[in-house]
């Protein structure tokens, strides 16, 4: 399966956590988050999908944002993770790893004959 064609429900489930992880790695802005997700192999995440996720994370108190003047552009909205966001990321990352390990235990190996 090509990297940019993951089932939509997988991406919807993991996107908030991946976006939070991208912002937690460094203070950043929307387009850079989209590039980071694409470089990680999650495919192209359009603005119409990304910004509602960023806004929800901000409403939940996991991110804060501020506008800064861009170099010749119209300005960028930078996002920073909060202490609550970092804690949430650590908790959910651990839970996600347990979850995917359990799911993996149920699935046949990709190389095993059917």
């Amino acid at each position: 399966m090509p990297d940019d064609n993951w089932p939509g429900e997988w991406l919807r489930a993991v996107l908030p956590l991946c976006v939070l992880a991208a912002v937690a790695a460094e203070e950043t802005y929307g387009y850079a988050v989209a590039q980071r997700l694409q470089a990680a192999g999650l495919g192209t995440v359009k603005g119409g999908t990304l910004y509602p996720v960023l806004n929800r994370l901000e409403e939940e108190g996991f991110l804060t944002s501020s506008w800064r003047e861009g170099a010749g552009g119209p300005g960028r909205k930078y996002f920073t993770v909060t202490a609550a966001g970092a804690e949430h990321l650590a908790d959910r990352t651990s839970a996600w790893q347990s979850f995917t390990e359990r799911a993996e235990g149920l699935l046949p190996s990709a190389r095993s004959p059917r």
């Binding site: 387009y31 603005g47 119409g48 910004y51 119209p74």
Partner: peptide, 18 residues
């Protein structure tokens, strides 16, 4: 502002991106 800032970075049209 998010829409305008994003499309200025990506070069997409707003309809393509959003």
């Amino acid at each position: 502002a998010e829409v305008e800032s994003h499309v200025a970075e990506t070069g997409e049209t707003p309809v393509e991106a959003f």
